[in-house]
Every structure is written in structure tokens, then in C-alpha cells.
Nucleic acid binder design. Structure first.
Lengths: 196, 196, 196, 196
DNA sequence: AATGAATGAGTGTTCATTCAT
DNA sequence: TATGAATGAACACTCATTCAT
């Protein structure tokens, strides 16, 4: 019981620190996200507490990445799986990522900052994995729903398109994400559909 | 003549330092690109020489950005202007940026690292300006060559697609850029063309 | 208790650093008082410890000034308040400052060095405030004990006279401060007394 | 002839640099008066020119001190010599220094900053020499014009009183120096005069 | 007389981390 | 679980000065 209680307290602390990290990274960039800034933001008395709960900065960003990836994975995965046709799944993927970027702005912004900063460089499982997208596209090509194209190129282009939304939101917080998603869906529908 | 000669020496040194900066940033990321690393890479005896030729780190990265932007601007601008139709110009733009990314890998990689690191954050003229692309797209819409779509969304998607190439090259240095460009041209041709 | 104890350790370290700072500034001047010199003098392993206990150099000199000002203020204030007549208070003030300069040579010397170096330039409450002296003089004039003169000029002159003692002590460590004070008291008694 | 011409040009340059040094030191303090700031103020292309005309920083401040001391010495010396009585000479001295401080504000301010900063510390002939004042006071005592007091203390007090004027002027540029001098003359007349 | 290029030592400060409690 | 104290390495940058021309 006591062990469980401690674990709960520790989990809460970790979550608190992770929240602060996400907000600081999203707002000020990864390079500015020092332990000091994070501790200030989380109203901790010292940075020592972060070092205590996380093995190091690598561990902290790993936890951040894992949390965001899990969140978006569950959200988008459910939407995609609800569709049966490749075209529908592609649409669901685009709408899913854009929608998640809209409703979880700090998380998505932080994730991208971390990945692009190179802090997620080596050894770690790439979160910019587009293999799932490639699979959808290849399924569509096999079903003659999609035209012939390089699935890798198309997947990368789709991925970069949806990953651009957090940056757009940073520049214009009032951006209409639903309309943005609709435009992208139409764009990639035309880009992928088989000729008549 | 004497003035030119003196200036030439300084210009050469600046270029040497700038070369080293580009290579270090491209290879190790912006955050690792300390004066010390740059000096080592440029085989300078001390970091002091960098401070002598550049007013500060801001000045150094500004020079880096200016140089790369100028280079790609001239290259792509010439290609685009050689085309007359919006479709041709869009193709030229994509091929131009992808081609430049292929032949000037370090430069492009360094530019993106700097911009994404936030070191090019405020006040500076945004190098991620897509207004020129928007203009091409709007011209095509007026000429009924392109279908109706949001030019801003399309321009951003094109820009992010071509800007992805340096990252692809980092992951796979043997990537066939010409084929990549051809795929993108076809992709965005289908995405933009007017219905028959 | 625990809080006090922890605070006590930090307080002791701060005091140790402050002592070293005072001695270094007094002996070698403010411009020579780098963290390195202070750390050496305090027998600290690195300058990092100073940065740990003080927010910055500004904070360090602020602490120094506050400590010396407080010390002399308490000493002189008590002496002055023990006197009732303006003449007595003026005498107490002169004797007080000169005496404190004699018994706290490093402190006074350091204070003057800091103030004169301009490190205590802007925004900070001026330690060269002579308003308390002016009040004593004006009281004396109202009581007809003192002749008519510009209190500001007289106060400034008294203040500069007593503030000269640390410099005299630096030039001649064996200076008889008691005799010096007696001379100054007689000097300013004659300068201020009302005509018979 | 050519040598003379060169010498003239060099002398002019030295004077120009010295002017700039005085202004920078007076306005921003000695510690801020780096070669860089001086070169900027004198509109020189590089600090190298200063190093060329002066053997080093010591040489530069030595030239500064010499110039100001000479100026004030000539001014005050003439006024003092024009008086015959010790009382008159003391008055002339006070009025002379205060007046010179009023009409040569930057020079006096710079001189004091340099001396007080400790840059004039060792080996150099002390410009804070009060022996000439002591001589005047001793003459007055011998002539029974002045009462009995320690000439050294009185001289130091007079000297510090008049040296305070540049600081007063910095705090209040509209200070009435003539009135200030009159106050000081009366003050020290009463402080020194023999009893009736 | 004057200059651009280059230098080595030094500045205060920030960083993530470890130790002892 | 948590904390105050302490650490060594690195950071960009400034200083007065010297070299070769």
C-alpha cells in the first residue's frame, strides 16, 4: 500500500514535470528548455527534483516523446481503423493529425521541436515513421483505388503537410484547422486517385 | 586596389569561417555549433578570430542565412523565370529547390537547422516566405490552368514537401533526387490542375 | 529549526564569500575583484560556488554595500542618538564615522571603492546620502546654536571630510584616528557655531 | 622640417585621442573607458591608432593626468600667487579649484575618476598632493593669522571639500559654483582664523 | 603616420549533474 | 520522496596588445 502510494505520488510528480516541459518547449523552443526554466514553470524549488524523477535529460525528452506519440497514435489509429477504404483511411489520417494538432497544440509543438532539434537523433525509435502511411497507400494501389506513384514520396509529403500545421498555428492561432484539413484531403485525393 | 585587396583578405576569412560554420551546423546541429567547434573545423588557432570577423553569433548565423538564401534564390529564381506557364513555373520551382538541396546539401541542411532551432526567431526577414509560390498559384488560377483551392494551403504544402528533401538526404544520402522531384511534380500537377 | 540550520549553512557560506570580497576589493580595488580572485582568497575550489550563492556580480556587490552600510549605520546612529544637542550630534557623527573607519578598515575601503568605481551607479539607493547630516545642521540653526550657512554645502563638506579617512589610512596605516577626529570636530565646531 | 610636420600631426592626433579619453572617462567612468569606446568617440577606425600613439593604457592615463594637473596648476597657481596674505591665498585656492571645476567639468571629472579608480595607484607622483596647501596654512600659523591646528588635517579637509565639486556638478549640473565657493571660503575662514 | 589582421588571457554566467542528508 | 550544497566543463564575448605591411 505504501509502495503504491509512493508510486502514485511519483507518477503525479513526473506528470507535473512533463506538463511543464511540454509547455516550455512549445512556447520557447527546445534549446531554451533548460531544467531551470522547467523547474520555474512547474513551480519546483530546484532543478534537482527533475534529476531525481528522470534519469537525465534524455530520459525526460524520451518520456515527452512517448507520451505525445501515444496520444496521437491512439487518436489517429482509432479514426483510421474505423475506415475501410484506403481513400477513407488517408482522409482519416489527415483529419486525425490536423485535428489533434488543433486540440493538443502544446503537445504537438513540443514534439516537433524536440524531433527537429536533433535531441531525438540517435538510436531512438524514429517518431517520424511513415511506414503506416505507406501501408495505407500501398493497399490503395493494390486495390487499384490509387494510381501508380512512389509510396515513400507520397507518404513523406503527406506527413510533412500535416506536420506543418503546428507551425501554422504558431503563426496564426486563429487558423481554421477544419478547413485546412479539408483542403489537404482534397489535395491528396486528387494526387493519389487512379485515372478514370 | 589596395582597399579591394584588404577587403579580399577579410572576405576570404569570412568565407572560410562561414564554410566551417555551415559544415558543422549541417553535420552536428545548431546547438553543437559552438565557436570552439567551428574554429576547430576551420583549423583556426582560436575562437577569437571568429569574434574578430563577426560581430557575434547572431551576425554569424545572419551571414549564413543570407548566403544560403541568396544562393537558392538565384538558382530557383532563374529557373522559374525561364518558364512562362504557371504549371511550368511550379515544376521549375519544385525541381529547382530539390536540385539545389541535392547539390548543396550542407548549405540547405544548415539553413534548416538554424531556422528550426529558433536561432532565426524574431525580427529577421522570414526565409520561410511562401508568397512567391502563392503568386504563381494565383496566376494559374486566374488563367484557369489551376483548379480552385486555397493558395496558402497549397503553397505551404509544396514548400514543406521540397523542404523535406534535406532530411531525406540525411537519412539516405543515395536518394535519387531527380526521381524524387519528378514524383513531386506529378503529385502537385494532379493536385492543382483544373478539371477537364 | 531545520530551516534555520540549512539557512545557517548558506548564510555562513555567503558571509565567507562576502568577507573575501571585502578584503579583495579593499586590497586590490574593485576592478581587480574578479570571481577568480575572490574564490582564491576565500579558498574555494571554483568560482562556480559564488555564482551559486549570489545571483550575479550585481547581487554580490549589493550584499557588500548593504552589509557595510548597515554596520556603520547602526554604529553611528546609536552614537548620534545618544546626544541631544546638535553640536553634540555633529561631534558624535564625525567621531562615529572616523572611529568606524579605523576599526573596520577593509569594510569602509571596499565600500568606497565600489561606490567610486561606478558599480553602484544607477537605480540603487545612494549610500552617499547626506540628508541625515543636513537635518542635524538645520536643527542646530533653528536652535540658534549654529550660524547661518547652506546646510547642503556644510553637510557635504563634513561627509567628504570623514570619508577621506579610509584613504588616509591606506596611505598611512599608523594614523592616529582619534586625534584626527578631534581635529575635525574642532574644525567643524568653529565652522558652524553661532557668533557670540 | 618634415620631422616637425610629422610631430605636429602626431601631436594633433594625441590631443584628439586625449580629448576623447577625457570625455569618455568623465561621462561613463574609468572602467568603461576601453580603447574601443575611446576610438568610437574619437571616430577612429580602430583602437590600433591609440596603441600607436601611446605606449599603453598607462601612458594614456598618464598623459591625461599630466594635462589636467598642468591646467589646474597654472590656473590656481596664478590666482594664489596674486594674493599675499595666507587668508587670501586660502580663499584664492578654494575659489580657483571650484571655478576650474566649473569651467572644465569633463577634465576635472575625468581626473578624479582616474585617480579614485586606482589606475593611478603605484609609483606615479601623487596628484592628490596637499603639500602646497599645507605650506599656505603653516605660513598663516606662523603669521598668527591662523589658529593652532594640524595643517595636514586642515589641508586634507580643504582638498576633499573642493574635490567634491565635480561630483556635485554631476548630480546637479545647474549648481551655483560661485555661491558654493563663497560658502566654503566662509567655512574655512572660520575654521582657521585665530581667536580674537 | 597609419592600418587590417590576429592573438592569448580573462570575464561572468549557464548547464546538467552528483553528494550528503 | 525530497532537498540544499556543490561541481567541472563549456559558453559567447571583451580586453589591450602585437605583427606585417
Amino acid at each position: 500500500m505504501q509502495v503504491t502510494e509512493r508510486s502514485a505520488a511519483a507518477t503525479a510528480r513526473r506528470a507535473q514535470i512533463l506538463d511543464a516541459t511540454i509547455e516550455v518547449v512549445a512556447a520557447e523552443g527546445y534549446s531554451s528548455a533548460s531544467f531551470k526554466r522547467i523547474a520555474e514553470h512547474a513551480r519546483l524549488s530546484s532543478t534537482r527534483l527533475i534529476s531525481y524523477h528522470f534519469a537525465g535529460k534524455d530520459d525526460l525528452v524520451a518520456a515527452l516523446v512517448e507520451r505525445v506519440i501515444t496520444g496521437i497514435g491512439e487518436h489517429v489509429g482509432a479514426l483510421v481503423m474505423a475506415e475501410e477504404s484506403p481513400k477513407g483511411r488517408l482522409r482519416a489520417y489527415i483529419e486525425g493529425v490536423v485535428g489533434y494538432s488543433d486540440t493538443h497544440r502544446s503537445e504537438m509543438s513540443a514534439l516537433l521541436q524536440v524531433v527537429l532539434s536533433g535531441a531525438w537523433g540517435e538510436g531512438k525509435p524514429a517518431p517520424s515513421d511513415v511506414s503506416h502511411l505507406e501501408r495505407i497507400l500501398e493497399d490503395g494501389q493494390r486495390a487499384k483505388e490509387f494510381r501508380s506513384f512512389d509510396p515513400k514520396v507520397m507518404a513523406t509529403t503527406v506527413q510533412r503537410a500535416v506536420e506543418g500545421v503546428p507551425f501554422m498555428l504558431q503563426a496564426d492561432p486563429d487558423l481554421d484547422c477544419a478547413a485546412y484539413a479539408t483542403e489537404l484531403v482534397e489535395l491528396f485525393d486528387r494526387a493519389t486517385r487512379a485515372d478514370a
